[in-house]
Computed example of a mutant assay.
Amino acid sequence: MELPLVVGVDGSEPSLRAVDWAADEAALHGVPLRLVYASLWERYEGAALAQGLGRSSEQVLADNIVDAAAKRAQRRAPDLKISTAVLPDDAVSVLLAEGRNAAALVIGSRGRGGIAELLLGSVSLAVAARAHCPVIVLRGSHDDRRINRTYQRIVLGVGEEPGNAAAVRFAFEEAAARYATLQAVRAWRRPTHKATDHPLLAGEPARHHEQQAAEILEAALLDGAADHPSVQLRRRTEEGPAHRALLDASSTADLLVVGAQRRHGDYGLQLGRVAHAVLHHSACPVAVVPQRV
């Protein structure tokens, strides 16, 4: 059974842009598209009451929203297989449940104007932190011109093992499908102390740490490069905070991919500071790819 790409819709402009992006992505990978809408009215009022009263305005609205989204996606990708669902629960619970049988989840950012537009909505953050599948958040979507521009470049943030493998696979697959260049970034920090007794650090501590970062980067990319020899790969080590390096790279990327480790079971947050930073401030869509530990 082919897992669908699932996108959450609610009728807002960000969610409609997410539908567009998800339709393109599903067509690119040859997978079905599933559009879901969370309807709390049915959850709290109950199906029996709903039948007794006839279709409520909330039900009509929900059906109209998913129907309009489906027509929009079909116009964008006429051959795409599309399914829709209105589900009786809150948005986070619906998307997390759908993510258990999805290739990935796609969510629009929900900021509204000014500074708020740069920040991530609570639904997007909660789903990215807890989903069992990759979650793509449409950062950069507050600028319509930006979301329609392509650079043919995927950026991958390489963190510490064992949180790399799933994100690396995902990034290579995206780059291969898009015929895009994959730029892998590994940040490193200069040691704060000026002296050390370690023979490898004496004299050139910065050089040692930069070399170590390059070795970690090379090891993380080894299997992915072997599996996808056609992907043009660029490696980059940069001194400084990882989130700063990735945010800088996001300004000329089509997608930024980061890994996240699940440390506290199904309900604990799995996002570190780097993932939080790029989800809030990236100039392009962000894919958060969970790695079980």
Rank of each mutant, 00 (worst) to 15 (best):
A85I: 08
V86N: 11
V86W: 06
L87G: 02
P88Y: 06
P88M: 08
D89Y: 09
D90I: 09
D90N: 14
A91Y: 11
A91D: 12
A91G: 12
V92W: 09
V92C: 01
V92A: 11
V92E: 14
S93R: 15
S93H: 14
S93N: 14
V94F: 07
V94Y: 05
V94D: 13
V94E: 12
L95F: 01
L95R: 10
L95V: 02
L96S: 11
A97Q: 13
E98N: 00
R100K: 15
R100D: 13
R100C: 10
N101M: 14
N101Q: 14
N101S: 15
N101L: 15
A102R: 11
A103Y: 12
A103F: 10
A104Y: 07
L105D: 04
V106K: 05
V106G: 02
V106W: 07
I107Y: 00
I107E: 09
I107P: 08
G108V: 00
G108C: 09
G108L: 01
G108M: 03
G108Q: 09
S109Y: 01
R110F: 06
G111W: 10
G111R: 10
R112S: 14
R112M: 15
R112F: 10
G113H: 12
G114A: 11
G114F: 01
G114L: 04
G114C: 04
I115F: 15
A116K: 13
A116L: 13
A116V: 03
E117S: 15
E117H: 12
E117C: 11
L118G: 10
L119A: 01
L119S: 02
L120G: 07
L120Y: 04
L120K: 05
S122P: 04
S122T: 12
S122L: 08
S122Q: 09
V123Q: 12
V123L: 04
S124I: 07
S124N: 13
S124R: 08
L125W: 03
V127S: 04
V127M: 02
A128R: 08
A128L: 03
A128S: 14
A128N: 11
A128W: 08
A128P: 08
A129V: 01
A129F: 03
A129T: 05
R130I: 02
R130Q: 13
R130N: 12
A131N: 05
H132E: 15
H132V: 09
H132W: 11
I136P: 00
I136Y: 00
V137D: 08
V137Q: 05
V137P: 00
L138V: 03
R139C: 03
R139T: 01
R139P: 02
S141V: 08
S141E: 10
H142D: 13
H142K: 12
D143P: 00
D143N: 13
D143H: 06
D143C: 01
D143G: 01
D144R: 13
D144P: 07
D144Q: 13
D144S: 12
R146W: 01
R146G: 04
R146A: 13
R146H: 02
I147T: 09
N148T: 12
N148P: 05
N148Y: 10
N148K: 13
R149N: 10
Y151G: 03
Y151E: 03
Q152R: 11
Q152P: 04
R153M: 06
R153V: 06
I154S: 06
I154M: 06
I154R: 08
V155Q: 08
V155P: 05
V155T: 00
L156H: 05
G157T: 04
G157R: 07
V158H: 01
G159M: 01
E160G: 07
E160I: 03
E160M: 02
E160Q: 11
E160Y: 06
